[in-house]
């Protein structure tokens, strides 16, 4: 499929040239029908140089063969059936019109040569279109800051959570935006980011931060109780008080142990639920327990 930009550029490249017809009908080079045939060839239409009648009939043939659709489009073929009366025979005239942009004709205003904007649209009597052969225009990545901003954002979202290096940006300027997004979306790190996203969603939903702070508080209380019990032990004199202090220490140790076990169990369960998160959870465990 050709894009509109490609069709424009192709037709402009033909202006001032004689459209060439291949063998065995090289003598048709430069004819108005040949001007349409070279376009058909460019568009990839089957048998572009087949004989489809003189100008007045060629539009009907293209419709009959399903190669064009009735009515004007963006890429319109215009036929006038009454022009081109030569030696008492009317052959008609055929040309190309890009809707609202330009028109191109061969052997019309200038013998055998392709000219641009020399044939008024309203001289047409039949309008058919070749839009079925036109694909979507590419959107090319520009070099301006808004393009950098947007693709830097895509980079964070699809490749890794880091700024897009300018050197990489410079390499994608001028490329088809869709193709670049497609390749980034297929990047191995993009899949990793999805997994991290899932962990993040679970952490947010289950309020891991609050759970961690709650368990940290329990641990701190247990540690404080232990310290207090140790102080009491130092100050105690009687046998009875010593026994009481020992019991307090044992209780505090048990509470601390319990809190730590709960925290470890919670983090371990989450780590086992998703191995991808282990690195992150190990970091959390280390952070909470001081690397123990």
């Amino acid at each position: 499929m050709r894009t509109r930009a490609e069709v424009r550029a192709f037709l402009d490249s033909q202006v001032g040239k004689i459209p060439q017809h291949p063998a065995p009908y090289q003598d048709l080079s430069g004819q108005c029908v040949t001007g349409v045939k070279v376009l058909l060839d460019f568009l990839g239409v089957p048998n572009p140089y087949a004989a489809r009648g003189n100008a007045k009939d060629a539009g009907d043939t293209l419709l009959r063969q399903g190669l064009a659709k009735p009515g004007p489009g963006w890429l319109t073929i215009v036929v006038n059936r009454t022009m081109g009366n030569i030696g008492g025979v009317t052959y008609g005239h055929i040309w190309i019109d890009l809707q609202g942009e330009a028109n191109y004709e061969s052997n019309g205003a200038r013998a055998l040569y392709m000219t641009k904007n020399t044939r008024p649209y309203n001289q047409g009597q039949q309008y058919i279109n070749l839009d079925q052969w036109i694909g979507e225009d590419e959107v090319k990545i520009g070099s301006s800051e808004n393009w950098y901003w947007r693709f830097n954002r895509f980079h964070h979202q699809l490749v890794r959570n880091a700024d897009l290096p300018r050197s990489v940006f410079n390499q994608i300027v001028g490329l088809d935006a869709w193709k670049v997004l497609e390749s980034w979306s297929d990047h191995p790190e993009a899949n990793q980011l999805i997994k991290w996203q899932e962990i993040g969603e679970r952490a947010d939903k289950d309020k891991w931060d609050q759970q961690i702070y709650g368990l940290q508080d329990d641990l701190n209380i247990a540690n404080a109780n232990l310290l207090k019990a140790q102080q009491q032990l130092g100050e105690s004199v009687s046998k009875e008080e010593l026994a009481k202090a020992n019991q307090a220490i044992a209780d505090a140790q048990a509470a601390a142990k319990k809190a730590r076990e709960e925290l470890d169990a919670k983090l371990k369960a989450d780590a086992e639920a998703d191995k991808v998160g282990q690195g992150f959870l190990r970091w959390l465990i280390g952070k909470i327990t001081g690397g123990k």
């Binding site: 003189n54 043939t61 063969q65 399903g66 005239h93 205003a109 200038r110 013998a111 020399t118 044939r119």
Partner: peptide, 30 residues
């Protein structure tokens, strides 16, 4: 140099250079 301003018909020079198409062969296509 020919006049390539808009004309109501193809130019006289174009008429002089005209070559008709061979018979349509579309019945054998598709």
């Amino acid at each position: 140099m020919e006049d390539i301003t808009r004309q109501p018909d193809i130019s006289p020079a174009a008429k002089k250079a005209f070559v008709p198409e061979p018979p349509a062969e579309d019945e054998n296509e598709n």
